[in-house]
């Protein structure tokens, strides 16, 4: 495959994504939006997992934080878009900055436990602080802002394009980070924290920045989530959601951000498609997950990288010229 055919493939994919609202059904477009905001969570998760090797179970919690901030502000008519969305991002940045100070002192299983606790605290607050969050009933009636609802060729598909554009931008930025000097330092921490300290790196500061970046991405996912669904409910941020992000990450390959997006797309699509046939769709997803863990421990992306051409593409992108 040469340079030209590569660009042809890229163009076809781009054109397809742009044309989705017109060539596919409304059902499919809706599913795509769902896949895109869940994939943002997968990006947030995979960024930490692949770069520093930290598994965070608090990703949905940050989606919830930003979603609930918008829901509370708008249902009480305190603030509206875009100020409510900005407020949501500020809240996410603040909470992740404070929590990051504690979390980045831990690693491995302790980090997982700390983020689990954070996730559960935010879930519990959402469930039980009924006077603010409306408890288990959730907050309803958040309407999509006009800015995300413009018409394209007479069809009301603006939301799809806004989220698609944001998604591409974020994935590009995160991928650029992973191959920057900063990303290299994070990988150094993943491989040997003690050596990084001995080399003079401010390891906890680097981990903190990475944690905040990851939370920010999850927070942006929350903005789209709440405006799309129109409802903010505690079940959106419960333990199941954390597990779903984790499963999608492992499905696609924990060491790859693209892999996590792939994994999340498959899990979400399967859930929607299988749900139409059987209520026991989780069993099927479970069996598939089992097969992946046994036969492709590095996930789907691991399978793809076994292909020499794909591997060389990745090496070229990530490491530059061979002789550099």
């Amino acid at each position: 495959m040469n340079q030209i055919s590569k660009w042809i493939i890229y163009t076809i994919v781009a054109l397809f994504l742009l044309a989705v609202p017109f060539i596919m059904s409304e059902f499919f477009t809706t599913m795509m939006v769902r896949v895109l905001y869940f994939s943002l969570m997968a990006v947030a998760f995979a960024f930490l997992a692949s770069q520093i090797g930290l598994v965070s179970l608090a990703i949905p919690a940050f989606l919830g934080l930003s979603g609930y901030t918008i829901a509370i502000l708008e249902t009480r008519e305190i603030m509206f878009f875009p100020y409510s969305a900005m407020a949501a991002i500020v809240v996410v940045l603040f909470v992740s900055a404070v929590f990051g100070i504690f979390a980045n002192r831990s690693k491995g299983i302790y980090f997982i436990m700390l983020t689990l606790i954070l996730g559960q605290i935010i879930w519990a607050v959402a469930r039980q602080w009924a006077s603010v969050t409306n408890g288990v009933n959730g907050l309803i009636g958040i309407s999509t802002p006009d800015a995300m609802q413009f018409n394209v060729f007479g069809a009301n598909v603006g939301f799809y394009y806004v989220i698609l554009f944001t998604f591409v931008l974020i994935v590009w930025a995160v991928l650029a980070l992973t191959r920057s000097s900063f990303g290299m330092k994070l990988k150094g921490i993943r491989e040997s924290e003690s050596r990084m300290i001995m080399l003079g790196y401010r390891v906890s500061r680097l981990k903190w920045v990475a944690f905040v970046i990851s939370s920010l991405v999850a927070g942006i996912a929350g903005v789209f989530f709440v405006y799309f669904v129109g409802v903010m409910h505690p079940s959106a941020i419960d333990l199941d959601s954390s597990a779903m992000v984790l499963i999608a990450g492992i499905f696609g390959g924990v060491y790859s951000i693209i892999g996590a997006v792939l994994g999340m797309s498959i899990v979400q699509t399967l859930e929607v498609v299988l749900n139409a046939y059987t209520q026991r769709y989780l069993i099927i997803i479970g069996i598939m997950f089992l097969l992946v863990v046994i036969y492709a421990p590095k996930g789907l992306m691991g399978l793809i990288y076994k292909n020499k051409y794909m591997k060389s593409l990745y090496d070229k992108w990530y490491k530059g010229r061979k002789d550099s």
């Binding site: 650029a176 980070l177 920057s180 000097s181 900063f182 290299m184 550099s324």
Partner: peptide, 25 residues
């Protein structure tokens, strides 16, 4: 990559926001 990381030492690089988006190599 190992050696690149080892070069942090003394002033091999100034912290810069844009360096976030420049490939390490």
């Amino acid at each position: 990559e190992n050696m690149y990381l080892a070069l942090q030492g003394k002033g091999w690089e100034l912290p810069n926001f844009f360096s976030f988006f420049i490939p390490w190599f």
